[in-house]
Amino acid sequence: MSHRIRIVGLADGLPSSESASFEVRADEHALCGMERLGRRGIPVGCRGGGCGVCKVQVVAGRYHTNKMSRDCVSSVEETQGYALACRLYPDTDLDIRVVGKMGRAFTKAELSPSQGGDSVTAGKSPAFDMSWRN
């Protein structure tokens, strides 16, 4: 027994919403299914319901969840279909929207904005995003 999970809307690393769907076995959570098949779309963090980067909102379908950190999913959000994909077990096929994202604290060098015209840093833009301090 397995259920199909479809990621609706644009998600991380996916060219279009059409390409994002995968089968999840009855004994595994949504994130595990995605990872096992080598698929992408939902950011992968701790896989333990603690860090929140794999947060999704279920927009169609039935499911159940294991305990999730309240720091990541509030009780109100829980009633609105929000869940962590690593604690999410589909009971039917599901449509989900990706909410969580990997923090931007440290960004890949090529994605980081260069800090001004400093000749030392020009051409090797900072790997560490400190823009939050400005």
Binding site: P43, G45, M102, F106, A127
Partner: peptide, 11 residues
């Protein structure tokens, strides 16, 4: 190289 999950995932 930097690993996003290692650097960004905290509790």
């Amino acid at each position: 190289k930097l690993n996003e999950a290692f650097l960004s995932v905290v509790t």
